[in-house]
């Protein structure tokens, strides 16, 4: 059982990122200052719907992508 002091290592948008063990995807979005922003989250190549962010616990080694809309043709 992990204690709150422990950290897990993610790959977030291609870069290493540390996060408290036990954190959820919603916690990560909050930490990034992106709560309420129009984003989409993918963990290990699977979409995590907005409605499930708070129920999705992150694990060591997870690959997380957080994307948004930008100009393009």
């Amino acid at each position: 059982m992990s204690t709150p002091d422990e950290l897990i290592q993610l790959t977030l948008n291609g870069d290493p990122h540390s996060l408290a063990a036990g954190a959820t995807a919603a916690d990560l979005v909050e930490e990034l200052g992106l709560s309420g922003r129009r984003i989409a989250v993918e963990i290990n190549e699977e979409i995590v719907p907005k409605s499930q962010l708070a129920d999705t616990r992150l694990a060591n080694g997870d690959h997380v992508e957080v994307v948004h809309a930008i100009g393009g043709g």
Partner: peptide
């Protein structure tokens, strides 16, 4: 429009 990684650590 295009879909790209959010620029983390920038002005949210």
């Amino acid at each position: 429009f295009a879909v790209r990684r959010t620029n983390l650590g920038q002005d949210t």
